[in-house]
């Protein structure tokens, strides 16, 4: 199904197709990734005025790229009807203590999926 659906009445058949096949958020693109597995990255401290998938609790924190999931449409752009702005999503590992301080367990970690636009090199 199209990423951006029309505001028309969905038929039973269209809804069945949607439940069966879903909506593909991956996109064919040659967009190079800024980072590779093992890189240390910082989630940018930005105050987005519109829709974003960058939670506030992770901003300014330093983590490590553990996986490159490939290229997906960028919800911050799609949500504003500004096109798909395709980019890499990475799985980024942050230690619990990096985010929450020394009261958090030294053993634990948080994994979160972050787009290229949310990250900067350390």
């Amino acid at each position: 199904m199209e990423l951006e659906t029309s505001n028309e009445c969905m038929t039973v058949e269209q809804a069945k197709e949607l439940l069966r096949n879903g909506i593909n958020c991956q996109i064919d693109s040659n967009e190079p990734g800024q980072f590779k597995v093992g890189d240390q990255v910082r989630a940018k401290v930005i105050h987005v005025q519109n829709y974003t998938r960058l939670p506030r609790y992770i901003r300014g924190k330093v983590g490590m790229i553990v996986k490159d999931y490939g290229i997906y449409v960028f919800p911050d752009a799609v949500g504003m009807r500004l096109g798909t702005k395709p980019q890499h999503i990475y799985s980024v590992r942050f230690t619990a203590q990096e985010i929450w301080g020394s009261d958090a367990s030294a053993k634990d970690a948080l994994y979160i999926d972050l787009f290229d636009d949310y990250l900067e090199s350390v």
Partner: peptide, 12 residues
């Protein structure tokens, strides 16, 4: 045991 929390905030 290590506790790993996964925040599924993107499209995965």
């Amino acid at each position: 045991v290590e506790v790993r929390v996964w925040d599924s905030n993107a499209d995965l």
